[in-house]
Design a protein around this nucleic acid. Sequence first.
DNA 1: GCCGTTTTCGGCCCGACTGTTTTCAGTCG
Length: 568
Amino acid sequence: MLNEKVAKILNSIADYLEMEDDFFRVKAYRQAAHSVEVLTTDIETIHQEGELIKLPGIGQHIAGKIEEIIEKGTADFYEKLKEKYPVNFEELRGVEGLGPKTIKLLYQELGVKNLDDLEREAKRHHIRRLKGMGDKKEKALLENIEFARKFKKRSLLGEVLPLAREVKKKIEKLSLADRVEVAGSIRRYKETVGDIDILVITSHPQEVMDYFVSLDLVGEIIVQGPAKSTVRLMGGVECDIRVFDEEVFGAALMYFTGSQELNVEMRKIAISRGMKLSEYGLFKKEDRLAGKTEREIFQALKMDYIPPELRENRGEVEASRRGDLPSLIELKDIRGDVHLHSKWSDGKTGLEEMVEGARKQGYEYLAFTEHTGSLKIANGLDEEKLMQQAREIDHLNDELDDISILKGAEVNIDLDGGLDIKDEVLQEMDVVIAAMHSGLNQGYFDLTRRIVNAMENENVDIIAHPTGRKLQKRKESEVNLNQIFEVAQQTGTLLEVNSNPLRLDLRDMNVKRALEHGCKLVINTDAHSPDQLNNIHLGVGTARRGWAQKKDVVNTLPLKGFLKALKN
DNA sequence: GCCGTTTTCGGCCCGACTGTTTTCAGTCG
């Protein structure tokens, strides 16, 4: 799949063009990049069929660039821009307050190409002498370089969401706010998060702001005003808080939930109906038609309500206008977690503690799926041990009447695509998960073949964390997902949405692609301790971002139905 | 550079804040 590469180059071109004055050309390239990014089909296929220019925002010109990228791996135009501006744009953009115009100025006047150059020139006080710059700007840049170095990455949703909820709770406890909501990419359940956005309705803005900036979670105050304050929390994440009137809160919530791309679409729709949409409401001339709730704004624009997880401008606007949005799976639909570990392999607690954790989630069933033989590092179980655990589970089940424990294993797919547990033993298991834990750097064909081999084994019910990625650590392995989805559909193998905050694998877009291939999913936590069972909402959020409905996810079924949905 | 149930040319999302400015450019969300 070249989709990602094509989108990246188109976005880079837009970055470079931002330094020039043709603002609308920048927009065109960004729109084209977005179109490619959200594709669920292979861009090469679309190119072969001559359908590139049918994609939104892609015309003759950009289609030509894409063709070049597919055929040569790059585009001349892009190479020329790189020569013209040999700067590390991405790195410099990471510095707060440094935009394309300033980057261009700094490069042309002082030869600044990267953070080190920037720091040197700021320390020499060369920057304050430039047009439009001053001592304050120079000082701010110097301070922000440090943060750009330390926290250049976005944070993981799984880490930031609890922080956001804590801030929300504290403000609610103060009892001066009528409503507190977390907005932004957290509300959309995006896998990584830039900052925390909190919106408040209050008649005591000053007191709320004073309280907010004095929280012990706060490391540094960046901006403090009556309507908006920004702080940096301990650990480096920025947190914004904004005050709105009740009458416009829905509009504000919609606006600050984003995404940016969706906001743009929504405003265009408003304009096409002779209205104007902003964070202060939906207006016709001076009259506010809607704004109190998100729902009334959608309604006034003759659209169905779009759940936050879908707000990425990936086709949800059209679906909403057609009345064709999916009815997304919800957290409460999950009836069991079937990828769990205990002390038997590399988990932290015994079986009983995990069962108690699953009970707290309100589940009907759970499955222990320990690592197996060849995965020595995780204390993998051999056939004998697996059967021993199975007998212990039988005993436990005899004592329980409110929840069922399933016997399982997470078998390792070896370098040849074989499994490390014999079929006779796998047949005894209720749930067999197969996963790759080594050799992830092998070539494309080998990795794909390993997974396909595993799926063709009739004992294998689930492929766990199919791409093996770890957020910000290891990228998706180079597998042919189209082929994997096809075989999964044909063999009835379930694909996992793993809820581990570092994995979220399949990720949102791949969930959507899998569903378009007719695959079925299972959402698991892969918990190694009872508290990790709570991560399930991250998997559900990811599945929702991939347009998954209850019927697509088999562990929403009651036990009998679930077992029936497995192979055999 | 793209696009068209008002358009093949003239548009292209909106508002706030900051720092540099005497009316605005750049950045951010």
